[in-house]
Design a binder for these strands. Structure first.
Lengths: 325, 325
DNA sequence: TTGAAAGCGGTACCAT
DNA sequence: ATGGTACCGCTTTCAA
């Protein structure tokens, strides 16, 4: 069943059928109704590939998400998908491995599929060569959604000011008489590096020396618990409070403290559902995922419509206070 | 830049270029190398839409996932995407709302985009009219990944025997001297209905009357905590143990019990990361997501290669014991 | 308002 | 082994 069949059954030419389908030109009402009724009767749907070949677009957006198992990122994808679909855009999801080669391969694959734009979730792009990104963005607009900006033509970023947020919360901890804050993260890279900068900012702003309280677990979050427990056991007496790079690490921290019979204020990151599922409920930094997704989608849609789009959009994070601090 | 440009630069015809690209026929080595070098130099990539129009395929699989916030489902998507990509298939993800209309719209949209097959994650399909499913599957193979089977041509299911798993675990609880098991779920529908059947099976097999201990919270998991807490407060003295439809509900149950100063064995469902993040660690029924995804992808790939594929594939669940029981 | 026909960028059959 | 060309299904320009 193709447009020729419809044309024949309707007693008109394919041009007219195409016009009816796309509403690209005036068609006599009577003719139009006839064609529409044939389309309804036959259940005809235009071939998406032929349309794509003509329009040079499938209305498909590539989304790259390296860490999908992490509920934080799946939330991002879910919100993004919703906002894009509201604009008639579909999402092709690629979750490559963590290596640079895999990520590059994933981005190339997306481009090869002819996506209209690519969204990079998280700070993936920071590890890729500038040249590679520039090469991709030369022909395919790139949108990043993270805490960091990349200054290249045709790449647009929505950032959450995590550095500022960490500075604020650490300052609050210090002001609350808890000057020795332990920062727990997986690796001191990317996002965590930025958070740690905010941590240092706070001590500098308060005129205090930086405490030597940094714990990069060096492993996946899921495996971090014993490492955190050991560290806390050995250093409990010189830790006033704990800040973690994500809520999962904060949950493990709470658990480890519970086992050790100690108690310290803990602040997590991402304000995920988990923060309400643990005891005590977790105070957490909310980087406002939904708002970032909304802005990214809006930028993307505007870009596809050839509008001017800011290269950089920054929003601030928000501390959600619960029981743990 | 298209195949004609490459042909011209290489001094051959487009047919030859196409042969080199697709390896569909013998080409003299020398010619081949010349063409390949031109392709490399120019960075040429065949137009995905034109290829799709010819092959009537983009190598795209539609994945429908209604409940994404739930980390259980995002795990499914992640595993599925990996296994499909390993077979050169990409994933178009649609996360529609929970209403039937939205789900149908999502499935239609996927089909309209020309996906090679559609995977329905969860029991979504049970609410849709058989006729609708049959209409879709008439021209697009459907794969379901859940606890339930659907007997229609061109639809294939991978199921985890959750009913049997629940029967087993409830039987174990009864045998452990805990005959009054409360079952907590969102609604007594779909998956939960099946689980509850397993629950009844257990009592029947043990020759015990069914206790009136069913708590459908009637709300989203995230909002369930107070409801669980109230129920436990009012009924603690007639509850020996708790079984929940997912780990999140189990976490809230543990939390509520902690607040109430009571303690009962609790068994969750899905064996998610959360089960290791709470205190006490959660005993949970593992429905072996990764295995289900592997099987689904394998079936799907076989189907696209026109091989015979079983309509129904069943695997058993596994109880992962931790501290909570 | 409508139709004919030339693309869009490939693939593959049929010659040579 | 290679080239010419019809064709995939649709859109759009040009003419009528």
């Amino acid at each position: 069943m193709n447009i020729y069949d419809i044309a024949e059954k309707s007693g008109v030419s394919v041009s007219t059928v195409s016009r009816v389908i796309n509403g690209t030109a005036r068609v006599r009402e009577e003719t139009k109704q006839k064609v529409l009724s044939v389309i309804r009767d036959t259940g005809f749907q235009p071939n998406a590939f032929a349309q794509a070949l003509n329009f040079n677009s499938m209305g498909m957006i590539g989304v790259l998400c390296t860490n999908f198992a992490d509920s934080y990122y799946s939330r991002v994808v879910a919100h993004l998908e919703k906002h894009l679909r509201d604009n008639n855009l579909n999402v092709t999801l690629v979750c490559p491995g963590q290596t640079i080669a895999e990520k590059k391969e994933g981005i190339r694959a997306l481009k090869a599929k002819g996506v209209d734009a690519i969204v990079l979730i998280g700070a993936t792009f920071l590890e890729l060569e500038r040249e590679f990104i520039a090469d991709i963005s030369a022909t395919c607009p790139l949108f990043t959604l993270s805490y960091h900006h990349l200054d290249l033509p045709n790449v647009h970023s929505v950032c959450c000011d995590e550095r500022g947020a960490v500075k604020d919360v650490v300052t609050k901890l210090i002001a609350a008489g808890l000057p020795r804050v332990l920062f727990v993260c997986e690796h001191i890279q990317n996002s965590n590096n930025t958070k740690y900068s905010g941590y240092r900012d706070a001590y500098e702003a308060c005129g205090l020396p930086l405490p030597e309280l940094l714990l990069p677990t060096g492993c996946y979050t899921a495996e971090a618990e014993p490492i955190i427990a050991d560290f806390l056991a050995a250093n409990a007496d010189r830790i006033d409070a704990v800040l973690t790079g994500n809520d999962e690490l904060a949950a493990f921290t709470l658990k480890a403290m519970h086992r050790l019979g100690i108690s310290r204020p803990v602040v997590g990151f991402n304000n995920s559902l988990l923060s309400q599922q643990v005891i005590p409920e977790l105070t957490s930094v909310d980087n406002r995922v939904e708002e970032m997704c909304r802005l990214t989608a809006a930028n993307l849609v505007a870009k596809l419509q050839k509008q001017e789009v800011p290269q950089r959009t920054v929003i601030s994070a928000e501390l959600v206070r619960r029981e743990s601090f």
